[in-house]
Amino acid sequence: MKDSAMPANVPVLRIENIKKRFGDKEILKGVSFELNRGDIKAIIGPSGGGKSTLLHCINFLTLFDEGHVYLNGIEIDHANKRELYAYRQKVGMIFQDFNLFDHLSALQNVQIGLVRVKKIPKAEARERAVAELERVGLKEHMNKYPAELSGGQKQRVSIARALAMDPEVMLLDEPTSALDPELVGEVHSVIQKLAAGGMTMILVTHEIGFAGSLAKEIMFMDEGVIVEKGPPRKILYEASQARTREFCDKIIHFHHREDDQE
């Protein structure tokens, strides 16, 4: 990608008026936002509000009914398969339940996309995969299979796997919500490292403390719309919408109670 050739004001990723319905239930009712290079935005909100569907739509893993997705100002046409596959490499996706390939070792999980999709020679791909696993602190576990790794380690492998494809944007769909509490920290610190390296990210999460410390902007999403967005302090403590306040109050109280117990 020739960054220098691109006007500085074009957002890396722009989502325009995405609508999606399943049967007669409208899950997304017109969602728009944009991300500039290095932006980190967090999406919070109650379950069933459309957060995961939105991320799946951005990656075309779920096809939306209306709307547009632009990468570096160019609209993505999902019917053009070559374009779609190239786009998906540029937009890394981290799933709640990891989706590591169960029959492949950690190393092979990271390597296979490089070999099969990017058509990089095996030896070179292996070198890159080892480097990515080292970056997430798992080099010594690289020959283990998913079933032999902890949840936190699996998620770190999946991050390494996405990073190996050289993404410009990362979509993280509740990366720590399937993890035991004591394993959340290791995944958070990997994500923090990415942030420090300037990675552009969208983070869907229930960990509002983490979201607040990482993101410049938090979007509160409910019933298929972005109800409100703004800097973390404002959304978490001084939201203007009643729905946002109600949700944040509940979640903040819950977290304080958890803290008290410790």
């Binding site: 799933f95 990891f98 390939f101 999709v117």
Partner: peptide, 13 residues
């Protein structure tokens, strides 16, 4: 299903 999604998200057809 996640195995297919995981692969597609990396750019696999």
């Amino acid at each position: 299903e996640g195995q297919m999604l995981g692969a597609q998200s990396l750019g696999f057809s």
